[in-house]
Amino acid sequence: MSKLGNSEADCEDSFNSNVRTLRYAVADGASSSLFSDVWARAITETTVFGTQDFFTDPGKFIMNMIQKARLVWYEHINWQSLPWFHKNKAIAGSHSTLLGIQFQKEPSGYSYSTFAVGDTVLFKLQPDGTYESFPLSSPEQFNNTPSLVWSGKGHPIPVNVRMIPPKTVWASGTFNASQHLFIATDAVAKWLMEYGKFQEVRNLMYDKEKLRRYFTGEINSKRMRNDDLTLVILSLK
């Protein structure tokens, strides 16, 4: 959902999934840069639909992904027709966090490989309510300067330039039917760490309107920061 006061179209978060490759990705476009929504969509799309595999060559996967995403981002923007205020800002490029996860079937469930750039967080919730989180593990670790995936500069810098790889952290693990995975952008992730309301959120996950009202209440009571919110819950049936 969008930051309170903004329209849904203003939301700069993106979620994408591909059940064929068993990949999921969440990105949180930085509101300080322009066309971050376009960039967030481009990197989630190229993460889940890319031909490279997380498991075989993570470094190659990232470079391949951002080069393809740059092409998508660059071609989406009609550079010539932008008004001066868009043109002058868009040249600086767009920024976004990104968390990607890919699953692999194993005899007793699934194994996964995951990477993160910035403060979008993966939680693995155990049946007893305890959890592990990646890449951040406490609310104090959130700040205003997370690592970000950068699109590179916009027009008139050409589309085909060498890309600078983002600062990426990787993790792997296993996932079974008794566990739940939560992927959350920073405001929800910090709130989950502070208040631990995983069960409350799970109970509301099939009713989008109730969940929206619940989050609105948390924001209005200042427990959660007013921001674009994305929360993905994965479980095995």
Binding site: I91, K153, I157, I164
Partner: peptide
Amino acid sequence: RMEKRTEKISDPDGNEVETEFEFP
């Protein structure tokens, strides 16, 4: 009115590209 101004920006390989931009 708008003025044409120029600035130099660097690409990832450090090459400087002189670009023209409009300043209001």
